[in-house]
Amino acid sequence: MAQKTLVAVDVRERSQVAEARRRALLMANDIGLSEADAARAALVATEAATNLLRHAGQGEILIAPRADGDIRSVTIAALDSGPGMANPAECMEDGFTTGDGPGVGLGTIQRQSDMFELFSLSGQGTVVVATIHPRHSIEAPVAPQPFQPHAGGTVFGCFAVPAAGETACGDGWAVRRSAGITDILVCDGLGHGAKAAEATDAACVTFAAQTGVESLEESMERIDRALHGTRGAAVAIASIDHRRSLLSFMGVGNISGWLRWDGGTSRTLSYEGIVGRNTGRARVIEYPYEGELLAIFASDGLGTRWDLGKYRGLASRHPLTIGAVLYRDFRRRRDDCTVFTARIA
């Protein structure tokens, strides 16, 4: 499984609400959602963008398609740095409004979504994340169940956003799953734009195609050979052994990683080098953990001076919500930015 092209829409004026709607509808159609599901995506984008203007004055909409086997979905995230909400639960009620609208926007988004989460702190802005999955009937929508952080299994989400002014993203990610093992690749092609995307695409394709790889060193060597003739890339591979509660990590270049588990935290260590040119002295480092693991990996398009503890309650939220908040507050617009978040319980 790998990322598809994400679309970011700045919302600063009314015409950009229509642009967000158009982009969501196009994305849903492109990945093969039904006409009814595409209409839901368009409605969610419209309401989310309208709320940005009405309550925060401006913000950003991220529209991210995702494929997980035969299931394809669209995630729409609305990000703002506005006044935030003192009581998010009250704001979710139909009819409640602090602006000039009817106060049904958030309720509409929730009802049209198959996964919905809102994170807001007074004075720190708001993030709304909604995912639209295929539905096999035309029955009235049912409000999605709230995310349960300790429900078990692996839940992950990622936003890979092109640098300002670029349509191609030079960052990328991919996931492989086998019995008891989850392997994660995060890649940052050198520079940005189409040439960086070429290197990242080669890394993701090579990683996804690997079978029977005995070690992370061998996996990195195969990616290194595949990137010869490209610009090269920073690459990080994490292999999570669920049964042994062990994360093995091998990083070359500027991919940062942060791990949190019951009773501990750690930053991952990457080595200097460029995959496709010189992987240097990179080696595998093991990180044992206990209980539930929260892992965040990011390219250098995300600043490193963030502290999850400064966001009350954020660590227990859906990985997509965590990534969206960090992206909003610490992205560097001059470069591609990827934030990959996984929760392993």
Rank of each mutant, 00 (worst) to 15 (best):
2 A>W: 08
5 T>M: 08
8 A>R: 15
12 R>E: 11
20 A>Y: 09
20 A>P: 12
22 R>Q: 15
25 L>P: 01
34 S>K: 09
36 A>Y: 14
39 A>S: 15
40 R>C: 03
42 A>D: 13
50 T>M: 11
51 N>H: 12
52 L>H: 06
53 L>N: 08
53 L>S: 10
60 E>I: 07
61 I>D: 01
61 I>F: 06
62 L>P: 04
62 L>C: 02
65 P>N: 03
68 D>G: 00
68 D>V: 13
69 G>Q: 09
71 I>L: 13
72 R>G: 03
74 V>F: 04
82 G>S: 08
83 P>V: 09
87 N>Q: 09
87 N>W: 06
89 A>E: 15
92 M>E: 14
94 D>Y: 09
95 G>S: 05
95 G>W: 05
97 T>F: 02
98 T>R: 14
98 T>P: 00
100 D>V: 03
103 G>K: 10
104 V>E: 12
104 V>N: 11
106 L>Y: 06
107 G>Q: 11
116 F>H: 12
120 S>I: 09
120 S>T: 09
120 S>A: 10
122 S>E: 14
123 G>T: 03
125 G>H: 13
126 T>M: 06
126 T>G: 05
127 V>C: 10
131 T>D: 00
133 H>L: 14
133 H>W: 07
140 A>T: 12
143 A>P: 00
144 P>K: 04
152 G>V: 06
156 F>C: 02
156 F>P: 00
157 G>V: 01
158 C>H: 01
164 A>Q: 14
169 C>K: 12
173 W>N: 02
177 R>W: 03
183 D>W: 07
183 D>P: 10
188 D>T: 12
189 G>A: 09
190 L>F: 06
197 A>N: 11
200 T>L: 00
201 D>K: 14
204 C>S: 13
204 C>P: 11
211 T>A: 08
214 E>C: 02
222 R>G: 00
226 A>L: 01
234 A>I: 08
235 V>F: 02
241 D>T: 07
243 R>I: 06
243 R>N: 15
245 S>Y: 01
245 S>G: 01
245 S>M: 02
247 L>I: 02
248 S>W: 04
248 S>M: 05
251 G>M: 04
251 G>I: 04
255 I>V: 14
258 W>H: 14
258 W>G: 06
265 T>H: 02
266 S>Y: 07
269 L>S: 06
271 Y>G: 00
272 E>I: 00
274 I>D: 10
276 G>L: 01
278 N>H: 14
281 R>N: 13
283 R>A: 10
286 E>M: 07
287 Y>T: 00
290 E>Y: 02
292 E>F: 00
298 A>W: 10
298 A>K: 07
299 S>L: 01
299 S>A: 02
299 S>N: 06
306 W>H: 11
313 G>F: 03
317 R>D: 06
323 G>M: 05
328 R>Y: 11
329 D>P: 12
333 R>Q: 11
333 R>I: 03
334 R>C: 08
339 V>S: 07
345 A>G: 15
